[in-house]
Design a binder for these strands. Sequence first.
DNA 1: CTGTTAGCGCATTCAC
DNA 2: GTGAATGCGCTAACAG
Lengths: 318, 318
Amino acid sequence: MAGIKEIARRANVSISTASYALNDSPKVKAETKARILEIAKELNYIPNMAGRTLKKQKTDLIGIYLTNYGGAFYGSLMKGITDGLNAEGYDVIICSGEKSHLFVPEKMVDGAIILDSTFPTEEIKNYVDRGHSIVVLDRRIKYKQLCNILLDNKRGSTIAIDLLSENNPEKIYLVTGPKDTYDSEERLKYAVKQLDYLEIEFEIIQGDFSKNGGTLAADIIYKKGQKNQHVFCLNDEMAIGMYDFFAETEWEIGQDIQIIGFDDTEVSRYVKPRLTTIRYSKEKWGAMAAAKLIAMLKGESVKNEIIRTHLVRGGSVK
Amino acid sequence: MAGIKEIARRANVSISTASYALNDSPKVKAETKARILEIAKELNYIPNMAGRTLKKQKTDLIGIYLTNYGGAFYGSLMKGITDGLNAEGYDVIICSGEKSHLFVPEKMVDGAIILDSTFPTEEIKNYVDRGHSIVVLDRRIKYKQLCNILLDNKRGSTIAIDLLSENNPEKIYLVTGPKDTYDSEERLKYAVKQLDYLEIEFEIIQGDFSKNGGTLAADIIYKKGQKNQHVFCLNDEMAIGMYDFFAETEWEIGQDIQIIGFDDTEVSRYVKPRLTTIRYSKEKWGAMAAAKLIAMLKGESVKNEIIRTHLVRGGSVK
DNA sequence: CTGTTAGCGCATTCAC
DNA sequence: GTGAATGCGCTAACAG
């Protein structure tokens, strides 16, 4: 409603003087400034973002791209990201859906942090080419100024297999995430590597990182009718799906079937027995992403980082 | 980089013709249009949002305001909201932090859905006065075109108390949320009403809707040294905090202490024993909010709605 | 069908 | 210290 020009008119000053006053420029006499500010308050003036953006060519906004099932991370990851970014004057919006990818080239956001496997790599590269600052958390992309903050999947998978191997299992089931998902493939790769090294048999069950995927995988294992099985679910979500399944059977988790997950989600802490899993600090992950993005925005060149992973023991593995 | 004028220049047409072509207007010859579009593709053209917004005075964006601990709702609530809004051509962004409140008056979003008790009521009213479309989910505000979608706290609280009363408890503890939180006060009010009606004693413990708040409340109850207690936690989060506490003691939930919560969060489904609680469809809640907002944006006048609540039985109450 | 032109709301350079 | 003028990128009314 009330634009800057209305204020200028009422204060009997030019538009530019009004603008200076509102932006607290030293070029305006204190007295005049006060008068203008008062009128602005009276008129309930709030600057229009589009106008300002058009002129300044920046929004001070950062877009965070999360997938649907990213909901599990929401809390702590976002805290890490937001704290860092806010401190530097940036505001954060969470985006989802294909259309919102355009926020980047449309310059609605000054930068982006991506943890969303549905965001195509080619698109990301394209935006980097256009000069946008992007930090990617869910895959490895070596490309110009692009920055990756990845989890130490190698260490995580190795630890997981090592733990399961202590029981001298005949074989170990590996339940994967969707095809072409970086974290799934990495975790699988290193798990297999360690299994080979330890000379343990294994069987891969195609999963999808969802609860339902875990339930289906559990069904496959259960139907074979052999108790005393060992499973590495490549994420917790699927492990929980297995809990759902076995709750309906006579098999006891931690006894008849040993399960280890990856991610240490909140639910994993509360299931009985507590899920043994691989943990990493989601808050640190977010904070690191924020720090790197800020550096990029300042024109500094940044290096990729790895977030450390470690074991959390629960009753789901003997 | 490449703006519309660059395209116009290369295509030897005027800026407006280029604009028309890009907006698929019938005012441009198919042939010309094709040529312009081709050049645009070549130049990797993407329109600048600020420019477009400034002109069109709308962004087709809806802001969703969620509090921190809203993380628990993220998944299903957002699905309900997003599905409805996307279908009408709106895109959704999740906002948090005080600064982002300004997105509304700055016209960065065409409308807002608020589930964030830190968003001051006065501010909301102010924005409504300015003509913005807002749907509020976390408090009752009777104000002009403002729309409220609230939970049926009355029914929920009444059911909760009724259930606990079946055990003929000497007294019932009520653990509240933060002061001045609508849902907390409502749930408390109706719980007390029902307790009075049933002539059951009760004691109110001030909580804060956080896990830690629940833990502290549990400590208070435990320290009294009297087993066989009954508690109505006004949200699940606090109930889970109680689980945390009692896990460290010899008291058994569902046996020595009966707990009922409110919200039916995911974790509540997995704790042992399963938390007895009050459920409502978060997805329906979100869908309703979306539907109402769309109606408002179309200039229709809308009525408030109530989301039905009902009991989910778990082992935490005998 | 296509070009000219005038803003949308604001920040900023350059005179005065 | 203040004002006039310009342009950010785009749309749309108006001419032609």
